[in-house]
């Protein structure tokens, strides 16, 4: 067993969990933050993307024990009273259908916009498509997801 302390969505949490607990399990089963979805559990689909110390990672491919002391943001932690501009943009642009991939899409979207802004690079449509390499959507055909991220990038 490992005793894990993290800051999740701004709140300090502490839990004792088995060493083989994935971050996705820690969030969903131990903290009951089920907004983070597990689509494939094989590191392919990106539905489980969360931010750890400011970087987007696949939570199904990290051990919670290895992230003791980390600061984690999940989809539940984005809205601050109002929807986050990325959430609003997905809503405005019909950027989702069933919504299963959406938490990961939004967390990846926020991450890419922040990185490109920090590096002073332009997040073009081609760049967004390339950046979404690790996020799979079975419904939308991606066009409206790309549009949503473009709108949010202009507003963030």
């Amino acid at each position: 067993m490992a005793t894990i302390s993290m800051t999740v969505n701004g709140k300090a949490v502490k839990r004792a969990v088995p060493d083989n607990t994935l971050l996705s399990e820690f969030l969903r089963e131990h903290l009951r933050l089920t907004g983070t979805h597990v689509g494939c559990d094989t590191s392919q689909c990106g539905a489980c993307v969360v931010h750890v110390d400011g970087r987007a990672i696949k939570s199904c491919t990290a051990l919670a024990a290895s992230l003791d002391g980390a600061t984690v943001t999940t989809i539940e932690g984005l809205a601050n009273g109002d929807l986050h501009p990325m959430q609003k943009a997905f809503n405005d642009n019909h950027g989702l259908q069933c919504g299963f991939c959406t938490p990961g899409m939004i967390m990846s979207g926020v991450d890419m916009v922040a990185r490109y802004k920090a590096e002073g690079r332009e997040l073009t449509e081609a760049a967004i498509r390339h950046e979404l390499e690790g996020n799979i959507c079975r419904c939308t055909g991606y066009h409206n997801i790309v549009k949503s991220i473009q709108q949010a990038a202009a507003e963030m």
């Binding site: 590191s43 990106g46 993307v49 970087r55 987007a56 990672i57 696949k58 491919t61 990290a62 990846s108 991450d111 890419m112 990185r115 950046e131 390499e133 690790g134 996020n135």
Partner: peptide, 9 residues
């Protein structure tokens, strides 16, 4: 290599 989340880890 891979995608952004893989490159972060």
């Amino acid at each position: 290599i891979g995608d952004p989340a893989v490159r972060h880890m």
